[in-house]
């Protein structure tokens, strides 16, 4: 007597339909039902931020949502950030150039968080970047490479706009 529901969702531009148990976490749905394992799970209690995805363009912790809640929604995960197979998004490139990742486990959450943040605040200070990622834990980098990457990405993304 499992409580099951149908879920239809668009992830990274692709439509999926699955029937799932209603208690299934969105994080598990994305990782194990849709097999998009780029989204990681570091705590399952809403503190580490590794599971962050973009839901209708806004960040959300996928371990704090049920899969049934995204029926009809549009989601972007780390797999959907790069413009093409061959190219990295400027933020991803900035992570690579500034050593913004080591083990890569926190990285998907950092990237999704920063994508939204840089839209909200395209020209941030270092302090603002630090606050913006303070809901994402990283045990490897000491955050410095990530902060540098975010500041570098802000410049790259603004590019033309600034004189």
């Amino acid at each position: 007597m499992k409580d099951m529901r149908k879920v239809s969702v668009t992830v990274n531009g692709k439509s999926y339909a699955r029937e799932v148990e209603t208690r299934l976490l969105l994080s598990d749905f994305i990782r194990h039902e849709l097999e998009l394992t780029g989204t990681h799970v570091g705590c399952e209690h809403g503190v580490c931020g590794a599971c962050t995805i973009l839901l209708e363009g806004r960040t959300a912790r996928s371990c704090l949502m049920l899969a049934v809640q995204v029926d009809g929604a549009n989601i972007t995960t780390v797999e959907g950030i790069a413009p093409s197979e061959k190219e990295l998004h400027p933020l991803q490139q900035a992570f690579m150039d500034n050593h913004g990742l080591q083990c890569g486990y926190c990285t998907p959450g950092m990237l999704t968080t920063l994508i939204e943040f840089l839209q909200d605040n395209p020209d941030p200070t270092e302090h603002e970047v630090r606050v913006a990622i303070s809901g994402n834990l990283c045990r490897c980098t000491g955050y410095q490479g990530i902060v540098d990457a975010a500041l570098d990405a802000a410049k790259r993304l603004q590019g033309g706009k600034r004189a």
Partner: peptide, 9 residues
């Protein structure tokens, strides 16, 4: 209150 990700929800 929390972080941007949590305030969104």
């Amino acid at each position: 209150v929390g972080h941007r990700q949590t305030r969104n929800r």
